[in-house]
Design a protein around this nucleic acid. Structure first.
Lengths: 160, 160
DNA sequence: CGCGATTAAGTTGTGCACAACTGAATAGTG
DNA sequence: CACTATTCAGTTGTGCACAACTTAATCGCG
């Protein structure tokens, strides 16, 4: 039987070429489709993810957004500043904890939810997948992400 | 039966939250693992993809690399400049067509292939997937990318 | 209570992705 | 053959991801 251990390094380099490239390409293809669908909303794809989180939770500290989207303040701070400049969110130092900044959608940001309502259906249609396929792919990707996030860095270096 | 047409918009927004986020997160988790594995080679993940292509083909014009990796000159030009500064590749105006620039690995760049030999196996091990799973996931992602790249932009806008 | 450790957000710097554009070379058509 | 259209690489500008760091507030231990 053909397993991870019976394939020579040389073939592996080629196989790897396929898999890492495939993920890379699929992600960018997805980004392209979202970019197009979100153009009329004036949102980028990461900004849309932030708005989805805020529509669901109403208001969150920056840290809370970061936990849900797995993004740090170095990414979120400028992104939120742009969303604020666009009039979609408000940022306010929390009175209870002055270190924390609470982010919430403005009325304009909330109104945007209605305009965004049709987006996911059009995206799903564009993938050509049915609900079961989408769920299946999502579960695989989630499991993969959890697995990869938990990898011990030492496993990845030659010196161990 | 539950299909794309029988799910209300509201649920769809939540489902969408899951799927787009999953892909996003999996990609970044993958990038993190590659980042760690490639640290000792002095390559970033996109630089590694370029080197994989060059190791396989020996020498290619910028356009050829871009076609294989689905990247344009705006991304590749500075990336290749960094690879050249690192001593891994050489760039030369093609004598036959002065518009074209031929990229090829230097001896140092070729030597790097040996150091990179163990990387894909360690990555594959980190995913916790076996060969069949990897192939299956790759095929799904490829099909998805092809489908998404071929989407008519009009399908994605409300005004149609 | 006081002070060092931790936490939150922000800043800086590097690299990638992509749109829009430039300039130079080539291809193709009348 | 001349001249327009296309092609190729590169540049510019915007935005995201992340590492490393800064600053300010809070926590918690002695």
């Amino acid at each position: 039987m053909e397993t991870l251990d019976t394939v020579p390094d040389e073939d592996f380099l080629r196989l790897d070429h396929q898999i890492c490239f495939s993920l890379h390409a699929a992600t960018r293809a997805f980004n392209g489709v979202y970019r197009e669908a979100l153009k009329e909303l004036g949102l980028t794809y990461p900004q849309y993810l932030v708005m989805l989180v805020l529509w669901e939770h109403g208001e969150l500290p920056v840290k809370g957004i970061g936990e849900r989207l797995r993004l740090d303040s170095g990414t979120l701070s400028p992104l939120l500043k742009r969303l604020e400049a666009g009039g979609y969110v408000e940022r306010r130092r929390s009175p209870e904890d002055e270190r924390s900044v609470t982010v919430r959608p403005t009325s304009e940001g909330t109104a945007l939810k209605e305009k965004a309502r049709g987006v996911p259906r059009r995206i799903a249609a564009a993938t050509g997948l049915d609900l079961a396929d989408i769920r299946d792919l999502r579960e695989r990707l989630d499991a993969l992400a959890v697995r990869l996030d938990g990898v011990d860095p030492d496993e990845l270096n030659v010196c161990r």
